[in-house]
Every structure is written in structure tokens, then in C-alpha cells.
Write a protein that binds this DNA or RNA. Structure first.
Lengths: 144, 144
DNA sequence: ATGAGTGCAAACCATTTGCACACGT
DNA sequence: ACGTGTGCAAATGGTTTGCACTCAT
């Protein structure tokens, strides 16, 4: 008997739902939440359920086709861009934007150096105010 | 009339609950969840509710007395250590450990350089396997 | 044909909130 | 006294799951 630590990966089927979820995530471009993506996909598959969207996002992430981004502020977000990059999130409006990874140096390297964990990955989240919310806040202060 | 953008901060009272929550977080040392802390505090205040723990942790964080750590893997965690440092989390058992910040360079600096957001803060989370889970996994593979 | 995938509704679980009362200032 | 803080229970909201059915392979 084959007693492997990791059970054999299931053979995945490319259902219409799965394909369209992936297409729409790529088309959406940003970092939609499952719910936002659900709205979008519904325009093409009106009967698709939110649960199916979640299930497929998990499968796609496991397959390495997409990346799930767990930022503060509640919901998970999903990203079809696979290149290493980080995220800034506006604490006011929740807007998320990519930032390039290079200026931060080799974080994985540094991580491996400072701890005895077997480093598998890492996530850098930057919190701040987007230009428009920053401007709005300054306006408020002036008139206050 | 005083029309400030930010309403006057409330005068906070140092209730027994608030003081003991802070004491227990400091005594606990690690990165307990609200629930774990609730268990601890209950030994001294048997009737305290989880809601009160949450409320006070929010207040204490806002006052800068503690830091809330939002890592992947469900619950928020809380930290009484205020010095800048990052966190490694074992993806297997959920254990969280501190890592020093120096080897990573000035992430805030880099963040400000690469985006037009007004950077307020950032959080680096490293995912990996703690030594014992890594060992366990290797053992499994060998015998599998 | 067969088991992965689906829609639906209900379950889950961390966190939050409404309310009437209690207590720190 | 005043209004912040508390306990309790119920609500919330993102995510997951059980089930019977459907469909890709």
C-alpha cells in the first residue's frame, strides 16, 4: 500500500465556473474580494453561488494559478498577478495597490537568517492613506 | 463652537478589567488571541466577558499600550512588546515567534519611496515551519 | 460511469453591538 | 452625578460545510 504523508492530489476538472472565475480575476486586474468577484462572475453565470467562488479560489490558489492576499481589514483578496510584489492598503477607504518588491531587498533571505523556522513565504502589508483620502483628511483638518 | 475634524478623545477610566487585561497580556508574554487572554483573565475576574476583553484590547491598542498583530490564520493576536519586530508563524501548528527587525532594513523608508500613499505603518509576516513541525514533517516523509 | 464540482441553505466562528446596569472620576 | 465601562445575549459578516444533484472526464 502506498502510505505517503501527502495524499495524492486530486485530479482537477476545468469546469465552466472555474475557468470563468479565473478569467474574471485576470480581467478585473486589481485585488477583488471573493464577493466582488462573485458579482462580476454572476454577469456571465447568473446562478453561480458565492460558495463556489470561494471553493474555486482556494483550488486555484493551491494550484498556484492565483495568489490569495490576506490583508488586515477583514476580507481576503485575490490576485492573478504572480510576480513577487507587496501591497499598500488605505486605512480610510480600503483601496489596495501594488508596490514593487525590489526596494525592500531580499526579505526571504533576511527571514531565513534571523530564525530557525523553515521559511515558506512571507507577506508585507503597508498601511497608509491613499492620495485622495490624505487630501480629504487635510481638508477636514483645515476647516475644523 | 469647536468644530474639530476629530472629536475630542474620551477620557479613559482605568477599570479593574482594563488593568488586569493589560497585566495579563504582559505576563503572558507571547502573542495570545483575545480568547486565550480571556481564559487567563478569567482566573482573576471570573465574570469578565469576552466582549470586554475585545473592547479593552481595542482601547489599549488605540492608546498605544499594546500592539495588535493581524496575521493570517484567523484570529487577531495581541502583543505587549512595543519595540519594532516582526513575526514568523508556523503554518502547521500556528505558533508565532518574534524576529528582530534590523536585518530587514528600513522597510518604512522603502515603502515611502515606492508609493504615493502616506505611509502610516506596516506589518511583515513570515510563514514557515517551526523546528518541531519541520522535523515531524520530515519524519513523515521518510516513513511514508 | 464515477467522483469532482455545484447551488442552496444552514452552520461556523471571530468579532461587534444593543441594552440596562455598575462603577470610576 | 455623569457618562464610561461592563455583562449578557443577540447580531454580524466573511467563510465553510452538508446534502442531493450535475457534469467533466
Amino acid at each position: 500500500m502506498a502510505r505517503t504523508g501527502h495524499p495524492a492530489p486530486k485530479r482537477r476538472r476545468m469546469t465552466r465556473q472555474r475557468r470563468i472565475i479565473l478569467e474574471e480575476l485576470r480581467a478585473a486586474g486589481g485585488h477583488p474580494t471573493a464577493d466582488e468577484l462573485h458579482q462580476r462572475v454572476r454577469q456571465r453565470l447568473p446562478r453561480i453561488s458565492l460558495a463556489t467562488v470561494y471553493r474555486n479560489l482556494d483550488v486555484l490558489a493551491e494550484a498556484g494559478e492565483i495568489v490569495t492576499v490576506r490583508l488586515a481589514g477583514g476580507q481576503r483578496r485575490f490576485d492573478a498577478v504572480l510576480d513577487r510584489h507587496y501591497h499598500v492598503r488605505c486605512v480610510e477607504c480600503g483601496k489596495v495597490r501594488d508596490v514593487p518588491a525590489e526596494p525592500f531587498g531580499d526579505i526571504g533571505e533576511a527571514a531565513r537568517r534571523v530564525c530557525d523556522f523553515e521559511v515558506l513565504g512571507y507577506e508585507l502589508q503597508i498601511d497608509g492613506l491613499c492620495p485622495s483620502c490624505a487630501a480629504a483628511r487635510r481638508g477636514e483638518q483645515k476647516q475644523g
